[in-house]
Amino acid sequence: MLKMIVMRLLGVALVLLAVSALVFAFGALIPGDMTSVIVGQEGATQEQFEAVRQRLGLDKPLPVQYVNWLANALQGDFGTSPITGRSVASDLVRQFPVSLELALLTLLVSTAIGLPAGIVAAVHANRRLDVLIRVTLLFTFSVPIFVIGILLLLVGSRWAPDLFHVSFTPWSEDPVMHVRSMAMPLLTIAFPITAMTMQMTRASMLEVLHAPYVVTARAGGVREKRIEYLHALRNALPPIVTFIGFQLGILLGGLIVVEQIFSLPGLGRGMLEAINTRDYPMVTATTLVFATAFVIINALVDLLYPLLDPRQRGR
């Protein structure tokens, strides 16, 4: 067991290394040179140009640049943005909590609503209400998140205009305004994720409800409701948890979109802005943060899985 965990962690470390190399390569491949961004296209002499290149280490071969970049990144130093003049790390520290808060709240809401809703749906499987709800849900997670955002804006701007004219306010400044400014983004992104959790819970529960031991318990006269809710849920849980890994990809992509729609100063918006301004250190840093989070959480889900699944525990 311990050996397995160590092997997994080693695997994760290798993937992360590869990811960092790829991210660095992306950064290096983005058209244009950072030097020209700093020095400005015109009016710079060749000497100035070279001096900047040397100062940034851009005259060294790419592998050396990569190792330097990685070593610095591991110490939390992502360089200085040539656009804003601030250290990239300080921007990340500012943006990260916004994205994290949104992500955690989404998971909280989607589980709190999606799980019970899925169970109820499974118990009432294929009745008319269930079908209606599922068609609606299928639709919500078929369309891109920005469409949901637009639709919510469209409806909301009629019925609750107050909610829309709030710009992001940090918790520390005004808790009430903060909650109000997070409400719409949360609603937007939680919508499809909740739908997925519910759909997955329903499918997983249905499978378990038709399993032999549940049928046996039912025949043995254990009270109907208790079987359905408790017995089944324990066994339905593992696939639901694995599914989180799948949701996560959508969640992280959704963060970028939602932050953009509602102008939240999170990592996603920071990344898009950096892409538009060709702010290389910022682009690579945010990409690295996103990918790392994705890989690590997926690995955690993987490790958690055997603990939840009684059949796997022995191994």
């Binding site: 990809g249 992280l252 992509g253 990409t287």
Partner: peptide, 18 residues
Amino acid sequence: DVLFAFPTLLLAIILVAV
């Protein structure tokens, strides 16, 4: 596997950037 280490939209975004 390395490509799968990126959320899909993020990967698409960064590829367009490149």
